[in-house]
Design a protein around this nucleic acid. Structure first.
Lengths: 202, 202, 202, 202
DNA sequence: GATGAATGAGCATTCATTCAT
DNA sequence: GATGAATGAATGCTCATTCAT
């Protein structure tokens, strides 16, 4: 597991989980507000409900907080996308359900997605790659769903469409000032799904 | 003009233009490399070919540099998209040409686009809105081209497709580690244009 | 006794002795490696084989560890010098034996001597004086041995020579990078003893 | 030159010299009082007469201050020993003069010598070796003076005696609480020189 | 107009010490 | 008696900004 790479002085693993959850919750609030660079470690500690000294018992560097945060966001997204895919039979109608629920998820997690877009680049190589891999996994899930639901699709086509769907979901977040003024979520989903269907064979 | 909002101590407007061009050139190089927050004003001054004191004769704060830089990138993009649109007759074939040349431009300006995505959020409200407006203008240009070339399109459809094209161009940049490993630029453009055509009426 | 000045929460005096011995052993290893200031109390606890909480049951401050350590080193040196002096008859030949075995001891305890030289200054006044007194005692022992073996020596001469011998022993430790490259221990002892004999009357 | 290895942001080399001299002066005062580790960079800046920001324009790390300080002390010692040796003809009487003036110098620079003894170990490998070399050079100077003034001496004997003299000089500083209570400087020099003469052939 | 030395608020991180369990 | 989680004052260092020359 990824989080195990972040070293902590605290022995009680359950406590580490609890404190890091507090930390991630605090950090997300702050990163939404002012971004990673403008947030101080003291603010993170305070928002997490403990002292600066305690913060550093659970991480090694400020960047660790960013990693834990990005990681948690991806996990959350991945888990829910996975769940929505697992439930469905591989039919075109269900593909639409999957995509729809993915867009809804993106709406729910708008601000978290923004954090990924704007701050993940501040991770060091190794951790950035780790997080990138999670992203890749998620696109792969969409790709597989596409291939199962629409067997006529070539691999390259499926991969591209998966990427497009993936990014159109994010777009609802990172272009919200523009998009959300023109469309309701339902409209947006409706139009994007319509286009998607036109794109698919048959 | 936007740049006029950034105050300078220097009277000679031509000199201001020259120095700011140097500054933007230096800043882009540095921001590509290490991002806005990790770049110091001293480094910007040095990369621009003058002293830190001189830098501050032409701007008021470090954020001004970011604004000038984002602004310059958008201007560059806008100018070239405008040119490509202006040349063409409103036919579907020419729409493809416009979109193709837009994707090529995004390929050329990959790193500049990344700067916009990752750093523009550090701008203060007012300037961020200013830059956002430029983005809106650009999407509008694509939208108008779409409506002219494909008259059957509704406004809402055209706006959404314009946004999709716009973001698919950026995607080539901000998801390059994933996308550019799977597709050549030509392949990417080919597939995206193909999907676009399927999406359009007729 | 000195160690009794260091307060402990623990009643069982034998346990205090045992834990402090562990502590001193751990501390010496660490101080040799990185010095007093660069060693943390956590490291000392760990090297001693118990927790940080337990460490503080047996001392009041980090400086106490330094004191106990310096004190232990001096005790060790003193004990062995005392033993070597006690064994001998007061003849010039035996003086040579005493000096020789002192130099050998200094060779054995090189790194401990270094600790005294480099860290004892970090002790607070009171404890520093206490340790200093031990040093004085040791020089006095050499001085007495000198006076007994070479009765013609004046007090002032004996005191100075005792100091010289004392420091020449340390020198083998604190100038080792220079001295030990030029001389083997035997050579060093041989030459220093030779000079000593020339210095003495008769 | 050694100091050139310490990088400064400031271009004006003369100013660098001036500021570093202030810094060394301030640092020596503080290091005498509380040692390197207990002295903060802020205190060094203040004692030097400028702000913490300015301090860091002239050095890169706190350790740089220690290096500059040790280096300056050695330079001062070396220069004066060199001068005293240069003046004299190679006779035994002049050897005594050289040694006497060396002891006087050690008396004058007592506290600076203590700094070398207690803090030089905190230098990083490279700089520590650099400083060590200066020490070696100084002993070599004494050694050469010995060989010139007392030609019958073997190299090994001369080297050892040079080291003894060198350390007996320092001893006046680092054992001052003991030695300076028993002897005046004149007495100390008198007795040590007397012993030295007994040691030398003829 | 250009320069670069000076400033000090601000930040990440450490670590001796305490105390509830 | 032992443990180890919690604390926060302290510290080294950075960097945007100013201003005298």
């Amino acid at each position: 597991m990824s989080k195990d790479k972040i070293v902590s002085n605290i022995k009680d693993q359950e406590l580490v989980r609890i404190r890091r959850d507090q930390m991630i919750k605090g950090a997300i609030t702050l990163f939404k507000e002012k971004g990673f660079h403008r947030t101080t470690t003291r603010e993170i500690a305070q928002a997490s409900g403990f002292s600066i000294g305690t913060l550093y018992e659970y991480i090694r560097t400020k960047e660790d907080v960013l990693f834990l945060t990005c990681d948690a966001i991806y996990d959350q997204v991945k888990e829910r996308v996975e769940a929505s895919i697992a439930l469905e039979q591989p039919t075109k109608e269900n593909l639409i359900k999957i995509v729809t629920s993915y867009f809804c998820l993106m709406d729910e997690l708008q601000e978290e997605i923004l954090i990924l877009y704007q701050e993940a680049k501040s991770l060091k190589k190794e951790t950035r790659h780790y997080v990138l891999q999670k992203e890749r996994d998620m696109v792969s899930m969409l790709e597989r769903a596409l291939l199962e639901c629409v067997p006529d699709l070539s691999n390259k086509e499926a991969a591209l469409i998966a990427n497009n769907i993936f990014v159109q979901g994010h777009m609802w977040s990172f272009r919200r000032w523009i998009i959300q003024k023109q469309y309701t979520l339902r409209e947006y989903i409706g139009l994007q799904v319509e286009n998607l269907l036109k794109t698919l064979p048959n």
